[in-house]
Write a protein that binds this DNA or RNA. Structure first.
Lengths: 349, 349
DNA sequence: CTGAAAGCGCTTACAG
DNA sequence: CTGAAAGCGCTTACAG
């Protein structure tokens, strides 16, 4: 009776689809394991002849070093995690790309995850990344309590929060000047003669939404205008909710003559509603949009630089990983008012 | 003389910033390693009392399982890689998010990388992902030779190509019907009376660009129109190049009366150029744009469903990982013509 | 119900 | 210049 074959000859059986290992390469080249390791990692101290034999075995077997074993010994994974809200949102694409580029410059890869604005999912994702021992974590918070990350940070996971500050822990964060940007945008409308100005924003528990609302209120107060309740609306950014909010403040006995839109998703719907109005309504929008200058009128915006935010956060992350102890810092990046027409329309009445 | 302390008491020194391991938990709980493993993984066969003691030790030490060690034994990383062109491009955000969602449903995380349309960088990235032993790889090709992935695929890395087919290897791919979509779009212009129709596309070595040009030519031939050299322009999608191409075909003795734009980046510039023209020029554009319906006229587009493409590719990837042997397949997803005005303008002359 | 031993594929620290 | 042994933090396959 023939023996049952247990494994392919010369290749140790394993779960990576029968991949050759350094051991297989060593056996084939007739050298020790460490010599293979030296060749694979380009370490000195190998004769050209030995190196040639090892390289030949590597090529013949199609060997590729298993970095996940390497990582286990070395302790650093050269991987950073990015927890954001939704990769499909045009704001996060450039941000993510910027983080990726900085990571790449440091030889690291980027694991992306979307929280879908759900605090539980944010936590689940962030901790899953920590379990994979990412070296660092860039988090765009969905929740407002990040104490769950304390043990991880203490254990050495570099962490930077972006777009919104961390909740209940002291950590680096990189933000846009949401308050200042909104204040400037609303002041711009005031300067063009508006007094009844509406504000449509995201859910109030989101830091950026709250800050922008605060900027709106500050600008109104600066102008000595008492804000009526009907002028502000915060909530989900789905088209239905935003449309309803916009239509309400544009109707009634004393409708608003201008709208400040709190973010890019809100803006898209607001523009649609304004296009349906019989009279011209001024608009200044937080976040820039592609094609914003081609609409009629062009959309005046308070622009954030998503790439700069991502770059700044990633730089900060790798500085933490660089080993120098640095105290947590709050870095605020300026916004930029871009006038294109919609924010310079005079009041219709 | 006091002894030099070598390590913190009770915690084994290691490179993960002194993280507790299962061994530490076992020691503290006074149980064996395997019992800790059972509790951590929710395996049965542990008395409630033992479980409590272990859990207490876990909490006290702030233990979190090192998945990267786990992976080394189990053989699957529950990680998939996505190599795309540029995460900042609005086409890839939704695509990436869709891949992420499918991965998440299978308990896997997603590592993203941008090739920046550079074949060398694509290869470097894809192989780096393989070295980390991703279970599967979704690749949007930048290069046209993917034989470098053959050993990886043979070793069991599930692979699906997206948006463009693999070069020189037989592998799954998920594409839009670029040929059919472009042909339909151009036929639409012909149906509205145009005969001198320009085509501005991406670099000819990119599969989608070539296919869309082929669709353009087919539609023109269907209509019995001989295409003049001056009507087609392929190349980089930077604004300067596209502007120049558009202006050239719109000038001279017999300018085009309609333009077919080959992708979203081209379209952005073409719209700007057309807006500057004194006469109306018809436009049909490949790829939808966020505010396309709000421009005047609205932009008629041949839309791809980026999310559906990503979802289809990821489904296919996990089917490969499911173990059933399936022959490589080429899946082509239909495009959708959305008429909004710009494609229905009659010829200006 | 519980745990000691071996091993995943590498690197580290040594010794020759 | 080269390699055997130990170990990274887990899981697997057993044995009690």
């Amino acid at each position: 009776m023939p023996e049952t074959p247990r494994r392919a000859v010369g290749i140790s059986a394993n779960r990576y689809g029968n991949r050759p290992t350094m051991k297989d390469v060593a056996a084939r080249a007739g050298v020790g394991l460490k010599t293979v390791s030296r060749v694979v990692n380009g370490e000195p101290g190998v004769t050209p002849e030995t190196e040639r034999r090892v390289q030949e075995a590597i090529d013949a077997l199609g060997f590729r070093r298993n970095d996940s074993a390497r990582v286990l010994r070395k302790g650093r994974t050269a991987t950073v995690g990015l927890v954001l809200e939704d990769l499909a949102d045009p704001f996060y694409g450039p941000l993510s790309r910027a983080v990726e580029e900085v990571a790449r410059a440091h030889g690291a890869l980027l694991i992306n995850g979307s929280s879908a604005e759900d605090p539980d999912r944010e936590q689940e994702l962030a901790l899953a990344l920590c379990a994979r021992r990412v070296d660092g974590l860039v988090v765009i918070p969905a929740g407002d309590d990040h104490r769950y990350l304390e043990p991880e940070i203490r254990a050495g996971v570099a962490t930077v929060f972006v777009d919104r500050p961390a909740g209940r822990i002291d950590a680096d964060c990189v933000l846009s000047d949401n308050f200042g940007g909104a204040r400037e945008g609303v002041a711009h409308l005031v300067a063009h003669g508006h007094r009844r100005i509406g504000f449509i924003g995201d859910m109030p528990r989101i830091h950026t939404a709250a800050e922008r609302l605060r900027g709106y209120r500050a600008a109104m107060e600066d102008a000595g205008i008492a804000v009526e309740d009907a002028w502000t609306s915060l909530g989900a950014t789905d088209p239905w909710r935003v449309r309803r909010a916009a239509e309400q403040m544009l109707s009634g006995p004393s409708p608003v003559t201008a709208v400040f839109s709190g973010n890019n998703r809100v803006t898209v719907t607001v523009i649609r509603v304004l296009a349906e109005q019989s009279r011209a309504v001024a608009l200044v929008a937080f976040d820039d949009l592609e094609l914003a200058d081609l609409l009629q009128p062009g959309v005046t915006v308070v622009a954030q630089d998503a790439a700069a935010i991502g770059r700044t956060a990633a730089d900060r992350l790798f500085r933490q990983l660089g080993g120098t102890q640095i105290a947590p810092e709050r870095i605020e990046l300026p916004t930029r008012l871009i006038t294109r027409g919609s924010g310079e329309l005079p009041p219709a009445d």
